[in-house]
């Protein structure tokens, strides 16, 4: 690959940001920062698939990726740490679009994914070793997973049938992804005859970028989790038990419960001994994520209409510009609420 996969992923973000966010926003998006700003960004710019999918990303890596794009004249630096794709960049990106992992859903799965993978790989290793009649050292050290897998296998009875079922289900799931993705995923698995390969080992074997391999792997994992949730992969659904992602962060969930009991933002801030602004963040998160949540108690209809009109006229999602256009008569909280709702409508 002439351009590293990091450049490709970054280009995807830059296209969506359209000059309205800096590299820092991409950094927070990939690392999965739970701030109101990042949560909203990923919605507004429809970057949910990438949310929290590159946890150990560094600013240095993104700067290098951006520099590579600029050097190839695929992107331009407008101002400090803000980049936009050039026409050539646009063309290049569209030509590579197939590289985007299309099942990726970081927004929904980034939290559940590590535990799900631990369960899946440990069950695979355990069943494989039972079939071979070998003792083994578990490939996972997480006490929660060890306990869970033990309980699961004890409850299941016949190991032979379970191995058969897991095999059949994996074959069926992997047939639905690309040959390459299926190969990557299989190499990551540990069995009685082979300890799983590291991302780098697979990358060296395939002569591909390690980051690319990592995203391909994650792509398969998210696909499997989605199939499980859709009821099309019964054993995977069992592995998902207790891991189904919550729509709201824990803290926002609490705020939501108080709101439903009729408390105001002020009341809740006092009750929970949190800053007003924190509770406001929660309300915005709820507005963006809970269908049917009404923002009427927080923004009056006239203001909401004005904000919508300004956002559309200016073709921007920059809070500051919208507020200035309305002569500062609306608060940032109100703008964020309206935009959160809007995005909900566009994407659903």
């Amino acid at each position: 690959m002439r351009h590293g996969y990091a450049s490709f992923l970054l280009a995807h973000c830059l296209r969506r940001f359209n000059g309205e966010r800096t590299l820092a926003a991409a950094y927070h998006l990939f690392s999965g920062k739970k701030s109101a700003q990042t949560l909203q960004d990923s919605k507004w710019f429809q970057l949910e698939p990438l949310f929290g999918t590159w946890k150990n990303v560094t600013m240095t890596a993104l700067e290098a990726a951006a520099a590579a794009l600029v050097e190839q004249r695929l992107a331009l630096s407008a101002k400090q740490r803000t980049y936009t794709l050039t026409a050539a960049g646009e063309e290049w990106f569209v030509g590579q679009a197939a590289l985007f992992p299309r099942h990726l859903n970081g927004w929904r799965y980034h939290e559940a994914e590590p535990l799900f993978w631990q369960r899946l790989s440990l069950i695979g290793q355990t069943l494989s070793n039972l079939v071979y009649g070998r003792r083994f050292a578990p490939i996972c050290r997480d006490e929660r997973t060890l306990q869970w897998v033990k309980q699961y296998l004890l409850a299941k009875g016949s190991r032979q049938m379970l191995a058969e079922a897991l095999y059949q289900e994996l074959i069926r799931l992997l047939e639905a992804v690309s040959e390459e993705a299926a190969a990557i995923f299989t190499l990551r698995l540990t069995s009685a005859v082979r300890i799983g390969w590291t991302m780098e080992q697979i990358a060296a074997h395939l002569q591909k970028d390690a980051l690319y391999v990592q995203f391909q792997f994650r792509n398969v994992l998210h696909y499997i989790m989605a199939e499980a949730e859709a009821g099309r992969a019964p054993m995977m659904a069992e592995l998902m038990s207790g891991l189904t992602p919550a729509v709201l962060t824990q803290s926002a969930q609490k705020t939501y419960e108080w709101l439903r009991k009729g408390k105001t933002v002020e009341d809740i801030a006092k009750l929970r001994r949190l800053k007003r602004s924190t509770i406001e963040d929660h309300v915005v998160e709820i507005a963006a994520n809970v269908p049917g949540f009404s923002i009427a108690p927080f923004v009056d209809d006239e203001k909401a209409a004005a904000i919508r009109a300004a956002a559309q006229a200016l073709r921007t999602r920059k809070l500051k510009e919208i507020r200035e256009a309305l002569d500062g008569k609306v608060s940032y909280f109100e703008i964020r609420l309206v935009l959160a709702k809007e995005v909900g409508r566009w994407t659903s």
Binding site: Y167, I171, L174, E179, L187, S191, V193
Partner: peptide, 17 residues
């Protein structure tokens, strides 16, 4: 190093040996 085979065969080896 043991040659890497097609993923279907790798998966078969894993469960049926």
């Amino acid at each position: 190093a043991a040659p890497v085979r097609h993923w279907r065969e790798e998966l078969w080896d894993m469960f049926f040996g």
